[in-house]
Each structure stands twice: as structure tokens, then as C-alpha cells.
Design a protein around this nucleic acid. Sequence first.
DNA 1: GAGACGTGGAC
DNA 2: TGTCCAAGTCT
Length: 337
Amino acid sequence: MRWYARNRRTLPWREDPSPYRVWISEIMLQQTQVRTVLPYYERFMRRFPDIRSLASAAESEVLAHWAGLGYYARARNIRRAALVIEDRYSGDLPQTYEELVSLPGIGAYTAGAILSIAFNQPFPVVDGNVRRLIRRLQGMRTPPGEKLFWEIAAAWIPKGRAADFNQAVMELGALICTPARPRCPSCPVQAICEARRRCWECSIPEPRRRQPAEGIGLAILLLERNGRILLSSTPAADFIPGMWGLPAIQVEDQGSAEEAAQDLARRITGGSAMPADPFMIRHAITHRRIVAAVFRADCTEAPGKGTTARGYRWFERTDALRHITSSLYRKALRYRR
DNA sequence: GAGACGTGGAC
DNA sequence: TGTCCAAGTCT
């Protein structure tokens, strides 16, 4: 709570936490980051400053003020809820859990948020931040059932401090106990954090295990003629970006890079250059480890007229560098000579 | 408890 | 560049 008092962000719904303003902010904040919500919230509040203005507005106009925020059922629901509030609760947000969750768009989280933040009632909130914080503080490597989260969050609430406490926990999750690279050295509760103690802060939640990379063999040609470099516009594989690249071909699993390179060179130049003596480079492109053999050859005697195959062009080195967008080929060029 | 629902930011 | 994730709810 002391940390929160010093580090809380100044937010419009915090400066004036009326039930209506808290309600709208909580709906907008569902699965949406604070920074994204801010401009929408200000604009929405200017147009719909209270429940009555919202209830009497056309759905299309409410949606227009939501355009770009996503999850548009939220906008339709708050308007429907406003209508219910107008004729069932005489225009005031109800103050019991049962009544709140019965309103469209309000679930367990939002009901708890309204009751605690706007009315300071001791109801827990469990969002992504709270789940992460509970799991880390308690050292839970495997996620517990949803029920346990709610029980712990409820047990944590200090008497009479629900409003600030719930926001403090979420603020801590948003600013310090972040999903990736938590800022443990700045954390006010690091001393009582089980994950911190056991160095599990990076394994809770379980790091995304990436699918094993596929190994790929490539033969690349580095053909030069009078200081120019031969580039190809036919990609060697669909995962290599860019329009232009070095001439290259994929080497089959048991195939020989040497043969592949010479086949390719024959097709391009009609046999005037025989590349040999490759050097190897390694490169990674999403889920693929590429091992490439780069074959050099000088085409000092110009290949016969028209023998350079279609889709290939000679470029000055600086032009070539400008046209090549894949760092795989840039890597190959760096080792020239 | 899955799966749909949107969009933008971070890595 | 591909994924994950964000102050969740509803079916």
C-alpha cells in the first residue's frame, strides 16, 4: 500500500472514482491496456457524462465512440445495462454483487472492481495481474484452479482498504511484476516472494516453449564479374524476405551442397563459372536454422551474350546491398574475398 | 472449461 | 516475424 501511494499512476478514473466512471473504465480496460484506453475514455466521458446520457443515446452512436477499441459487445452491453439501471435502479448503479453481475457485460471481475473501487466494499478482483502476482508470491509453478485465486485475493484485502488495495495489486502487476522480465529489485514485496526466493520469477508463468527449429541446408552463389555481383529475383525459399537476393538453392537432406551449387551455376551462366571452395554461414529465421554454404566464383570471362538466365541481374556492389533485404545474404556478402 | 471476441504493444 | 498478452465476458 505504501508502494502504491508513492507509485500509482494518475488516471482519470482514479482522480474522480464515481461509480459510473469506475464502471466505464473497468469495461474499457477489459483485455485492453491503460495507454490504449485513455483517449477513448476521455472522449466517451465528454459525450456520455452520466448514465442517463448513455441510456438515451442510440446504439450506433455509442458504437461510434467505441470504434477502434475492439470487443464491440462491450459497447452494446454498457448501453443495455444503462437502460436497465435507468428503469430498475432509478438511474444509480446497484451496490450488491448479485445485482451487478446480472447486468450485461459485468462479470465477477467487474462487479468486484466496482464494489471495491467505487464503494470500498471488501470484494476481491482477479485479473491477469492478480493471477500472476498470486502465482509468483506463492511459488505456484502449475496454475491452480480459478476458485483458489478468488479465495486468496479475498483473504488478502486489508480491513477497510479494499479500494486502494485492489488497485495496488493490479498496479504492481502492471508496473513491476510484469509477465516478461519482472522488475524484482524494485518490488516492494520481494522479501516475501516465493518465486523470487527460488529463482522462479522467470518460469512463472511457464515460458512459451517454442517449437524446435527446422534445420535447412542452403547453397548460395557469390558470383562476381568486373566488380559486379549477380543477384536473383527468384527466391530460394518462401521464408527468405525480399525481392532480390543472392542466387541460392535449398539442399536436400542427404544432398551435396557442392553439386547443388554447380547445377545452379550451370543453369544461370551456362557453365562459364565453376564455383568451389565454400565457406559456411549460419542464420536463423523464425523456426528455422539455416546452414548455408557460400560458393564464390569469378566470371572474369564474360558469359556469352544472353546466357545469363532470366530473373538474374548484375549489380554494382553498393546497388546490390541496397536491393538485398535479407540479412542472410548480407552476411554472405560480408565474407567476400 | 474451451472458444470467440479486436486491437495494439512488447519482445 | 510470430506470439503472447492486456484491469474479461458470454455462450
